[in-house]
Design a protein around this nucleic acid. Structure first.
Ligand SMILES: [Mn+2]
Ligand SMILES: [Mn+2]
Ligand SMILES: [Zn+2]
Ligand SMILES: [Zn+2]
Lengths: 140, 140
DNA sequence: AAATAAATGCAACAATGTTGCGATTATTGT
DNA sequence: ACAATAATCGCAACATTGTTGCATTTATTT
């Protein structure tokens, strides 16, 4: 139920010292209900007509949610960030899958790569960004 | 010597059935001379004042070089493609490093990940895109 | 209910890349 | 060397995604 997610969303926002505005709650509820990582545009489309937000407000709300570590965003090759709620599985580093057919992005559970990557001398490792590309079950 | 690269570039272009225009040759020579993967903008800046190209022409030349497999392009989190000449090392799949300080991108030699990634049932693997982020020797 | 800081909406801007189309040019054949 | 031709180029216009400044509104606290 989306109402359930609304409640959870509001809690999460308050626990992080932010104002529980309709916009933030709605956005986070959408991301909590979503299996995949979705774009700014897709979030906009899922918002009920009654409470459409300004583009900029949506961007800023997402920025805030990322800062507070409630969601994470994923780089893609189509120049559009995709956002996804942080669940237990995804609190740490993980890889992503992107379908080259329908452009959907899902989070993969693990990041089966050694964190100690062989870098040139003097370089310092910070993090790995890994996207597996292929076809999803629908597009196969 | 950049002239040497010009000669090589012209050869590579002709061998692929394309017209050896000053623009294409200049671009490919720049990419051959460059260690790192560089952006459209950076290529533009390296072109001699005498033969500045239209932005669109530059984009289309790069597109053609990628099609012909003479160069490859790299996705980044700043929404700008970066281009690099295909050498032996990079003809196959490989990972990239991006410095979070100065934004430089270099190609890493290997891709120490199994090509057979554990995907959900019904999904088909195509390729891996992997970027290691960190600080380069200068920015450390 | 008033005070206050946080969040919002609007307009303007920036960066990167794409498309259509007429003009130019590299290449080929004579 | 010259003409024919298709490939390439340059320009203008557009698209998408995201950012910044600032005045207005609103959630929260007192
Ligand atoms: Mn994820
Ligand atoms: Mn590379
Ligand atoms: Zn798909
Ligand atoms: Zn650096």
């Amino acid at each position: 139920m989306l109402n359930q997610f609304h409640h959870t969303a509001e809690d999460m926002i308050r626990h992080n010292g932010g104002r529980a505005t309709a916009g933030r709650i709605g956005i986070l509820a959408i991301l909590l209900a979503e299996q995949q990582a979705i774009t700014h545009r897709e979030i906009e489309q899922r918002l009920p007509q009654a409470q459409q937000l300004d583009r900029v407000t949506l961007y800023r709300a997402l920025e805030w949610l990322v800062e507070k570590n409630l969601i994470h965003k994923v780089t893609s090759d189509d120049r559009a960030w995709r956002y996804h709620a942080n669940r237990e599985l995804h609190s740490h580093q993980h890889a992503h899958f992107k379908c080259t057919g329908c452009a959907q992005v899902i989070c993969l559970d693990k990041l089966p790569v050694e964190a100690n990557w062989p870098l040139p001398a003097g370089y310092r490792f910070q993090e790995i960004e890994l996207t597996v590309k292929g076809l999803c079950a629908n597009c196969c």
